[in-house]
């Protein structure tokens, strides 16, 4: 009887299998970019909703490459928004306060929507700044 190391076993983990499904994602992104250019319509793809293997994800990441911008956002956990080699295509990964991934998206937009501050937030910030200035003036 052969010992365990003599038994020829070739284990392929799910993370090593290319299923071919990432190709379709690239085509979809190209369509979204065209819509952004032609009509200004933003789009996004939920990567966690697709049956991509680990190898598919690595392949996709390689195809998309890296651009010049990387944004770190700290809001209930860290988020990383990375521009790909194709301007207007962003890879977005949201983590919760325990560092677990809660959403993983490809966003096609000039700037990811979560980065742009909301009108209400800007208004509150403005009021707060005015109060601060008033207090400083009163202090002087």
């Amino acid at each position: 009887m052969p010992s365990i190391d003599q038994i020829p076993i070739s284990i392929v983990s799910p993370d090593e299998m290319l299923t071919g499904q990432a190709d379709a994602v690239l085509t979809e992104i190209a369509g979204m970019l065209k819509r952004l250019l032609d009509d200004g319509i933003e789009g996004s793809i939920d990567l966690r909703g697709l049956a991509l293997s680990g190898a598919d994800r690595v392949w996709l990441e390689k195809q998309l490459g890296r651009g010049e911008v990387e944004i770190m956002l700290e809001a209930g956990g860290w988020s990383v928004l990375t521009e790909t080699a194709y301007p207007g295509v962003w890879k977005v990964m949201h983590r919760d306060d325990r560092d677990r991934v809660v959403a993983e998206l490809i966003e096609v937009a000039f700037v990811p929507a979560i980065i742009r501050p909301d009108n209400g937030d800007v208004k509150k910030g403005h009021e707060s700044l005015l109060l601060n200035l008033k207090a400083k003036t009163a202090g002087v």
Binding site: A75, G76, S79, V102, A103, I114, D121
Partner: peptide, 16 residues
Amino acid sequence: GMSRRTFIKYCASLAS
């Protein structure tokens, strides 16, 4: 003390 962006992230996970 939860910001709008935090809530959007939360909603992104629910939408997903």
